[in-house]
Write a protein that binds this DNA or RNA. Sequence first.
DNA 1: TTCGTTATTTCAATAAATCCGAACTATTGA
DNA 2: TCAATAGTTCGGATTTATTGAAATAACGAA
Lengths: 107, 107
Amino acid sequence: MQSFIHPDMRDVTLDAVLYALADPARRAIVRALAADRACEGKGLSCNAAAPPDLPKATMSQHYAKLRAAGVVRATRKGVSVIHTLRCDEINAKFPGLLPAILEAVEV
Amino acid sequence: MQSFIHPDMRDVTLDAVLYALADPARRAIVRALAADRACEGKGLSCNAAAPPDLPKATMSQHYAKLRAAGVVRATRKGVSVIHTLRCDEINAKFPGLLPAILEAVEV
DNA sequence: TTCGTTATTTCAATAAATCCGAACTATTGA
DNA sequence: TCAATAGTTCGGATTTATTGAAATAACGAA
């Protein structure tokens, strides 16, 4: 498998971003990446950021959607794929959206 | 058909709200209701707030999802069903979320 | 009250998207 | 070269969405 494709911010739509974030597993991933960014900031492997009981085929599909939506960026590091939040870019394009979602209390 | 059921704000989840807003037709409805609230503020009929080319059955399902998610409130007025945004309630529960989505520029 | 009109919902069938086990690919280290 | 680890892709089962057609609801007029 060749390197990952990430959309240019011009092609990132609110539709895709909201759609990507409208799933609890994907939000859990985004929360984990946001928390990581606040400390280490070097990114997390797929497994490290995903809910522990998620089947890996499903997990992989979730990451594919997050990448396609422009929410996360992936790079391969050895045997792992490391993801980071495209935090500043999303904040610039959709001000307030990520903070509002990340700061919301989930039941 | 008897009166509409609207969830108590305690039972409104971020999941359902994001899911409801992660659809362009439903966002168009929400935008129309937000714009209406800024002037008349008396609410809009289903047809008035929905994109003009939306099939009626589809429109009705979209409203059902918006109501179930706690995003809008419906009351019957004559032959029409009038919807309003549950703006203050959503703002109180998920601060910044609605503004961020409504102020985003859609492509 | 019965009929016609308008506005919306429900039903039911089709179409599309999602989930996930199994098989596959990529990378590294022994 | 082989085995182990981390993800991805494939394919079929299940779920969800879409929408035409029929049903329901409210009203006004005859």
